[in-house]
Write a protein that binds this DNA or RNA. Sequence first.
DNA 1: CGATCGCTTGATTCCGATCAACAGGAGTGG
DNA 2: CCACTCCTGTTGATCGGAATCAAGCGATCG
Lengths: 230, 230
Amino acid sequence: MLTQTAIRNVSPRQPATQPHRGPVPSAASQTGTIELMGACMSFGANAEIYGENEPAEYLYKVVSGTVRTYKVLVDGRRQIGAFHLPGDIFGLETGEVHTFSAEAITECKIIVIKRSTVMALAARDNNDVARQMWGLTARELRRLQEHSLVLIKSAEERVAGFLLEMADRVPSGGAVELPMSRQDIADYLGLTIETVSRTLKHLEDAAAIEVPKRRRILLRNRSALRRLNA
Amino acid sequence: MLTQTAIRNVSPRQPATQPHRGPVPSAASQTGTIELMGACMSFGANAEIYGENEPAEYLYKVVSGTVRTYKVLVDGRRQIGAFHLPGDIFGLETGEVHTFSAEAITECKIIVIKRSTVMALAARDNNDVARQMWGLTARELRRLQEHSLVLIKSAEERVAGFLLEMADRVPSGGAVELPMSRQDIADYLGLTIETVSRTLKHLEDAAAIEVPKRRRILLRNRSALRRLNA
DNA sequence: CGATCGCTTGATTCCGATCAACAGGAGTGG
DNA sequence: CCACTCCTGTTGATCGGAATCAAGCGATCG
């Protein structure tokens, strides 16, 4: 068992603990054109799903759990590009290799589909599949375009925007259950954990949110958050 | 002829001066599948090409000149998403409206193609066109994914990275002729003009670059820049 | 029960923003 | 030609927000 911890910055902040396990046939949550062709796999918390620059042989759909995709610079700084929640498809590439790494944040069940299968289908028969792939890519592009605005936002605006984004994606009525750590949030928003923590406090003091448990956040005043979101 | 101009945003830093002119038949620089179907138009410096949330009826290919795409927040902060140089295609959307605004930075010649034409072609005959569209979208996604790393970079790293990016795109051997202002660079990198200016000075002092004219930059030491790019 | 981990809170530092003045062209008109 | 303005970019001084450094705290777990 790896006891290597507490290195913190200088390298992987959340070292992956488990490599791929063999495909574990399991019930898919919903049906569509694509996910019929794949097997369901399980990943433990912090398990690596794939690494940057690895050949992109598969495409993934989250059944349960949460996934982060990220890049790390040589000196250990990490940028999380996206969080993927149940229903989301990720790992879709047109190039030969993955442009990001992917890790399970929590325990995950994920449908894994062979890329070649999809591509062949898109090429031969059905150009509907090709359009579906294009649609997914474009959707991801729009998300990232929106996210690029964080560059010109203050810490408060970033955190407020993040909470609204999460609230939209997990329609659990007023309360947001965060699957990811403060460090993950920080690396997604380009802030430090301390700043994320302090900013949540500010928002709580301003009565915009309530934080009954660390990972559970109630949005008390969405319009205030939206105003902050700039 | 539409004369509707100059409504623009609340506090335009670079107000658009000219609306669309009528299509001006002109020689295309290169041939491909797509640009055969379009007309060439001219835009003056700072002319608006399209606005955010306007219906995305066309798709654009730069023949000459440079284009910026951007979003502005209510309070006037601007984020430039991309610079488009000759050969680049932009304005491609899967949704019904543009997610960014687009303006000519310099005088531009641009091929304008009806979106419906391309889409119809992609749907009916040729699924090669659909794949080409997908490829373009994916390419843009990768660019933006790479750009998202600026969030965790210092001013020096951002500017160094920008210069290398531009040098790659304009293969003019060692020297980079910048078509955009310092303000544009700043809004692309999430910095201020002052910081961009100072950082260029630092890089010059460190003998990594040379700035004989304001818009002309010589990369003296690329490996140093690459090291800074982190 | 200590131990570890994830998070919070406080003190201080520092990078880049802001405020402010100035410099160098480019264009204009006398 | 020069005097003028306008515009873009540079440079300097100061400020401020977030990073960094450093404890401390409260869960969860062996």
